[in-house]
Amino acid sequence: MQTPDDLIHQPVRLKIMAALNTLASNQWLEFVSLRAIVDTTDGNLGAHLGTLEGADYVRIKKDFVGKKPRTRVCLSVKGREAFAHYVATLHAILAPQNIDT
């Protein structure tokens, strides 16, 4: 029985991981940009990022550009591997169906 990573399987976290996975390794995406891509609220995104950061799937960096605060997010190596495994699991779940059809 194939079971995908529950942490990633949640819809908003899935979108976050999918968006960050499009970036090159060690490339950061600004919080506001990620919010626009994932299409959610600041609070919701912040909460899910906290969960992913707790699992070491994402790294979060806070700094200032001039006097303006900036938050950036990046997929960690562990997160990238977990996402690849998650996608592989989904394909594995679909595989028997593909054989039937």
Partner: peptide
């Protein structure tokens, strides 16, 4: 484990976000 329909929906969501 999610059903094949759920797995397909998750893959579609990933493609859409990408």
């Amino acid at each position: 484990s999610p059903s094949p329909e759920e797995a397909a929906a998750a893959l579609r969501a990933i493609n859409s976000v990408q």
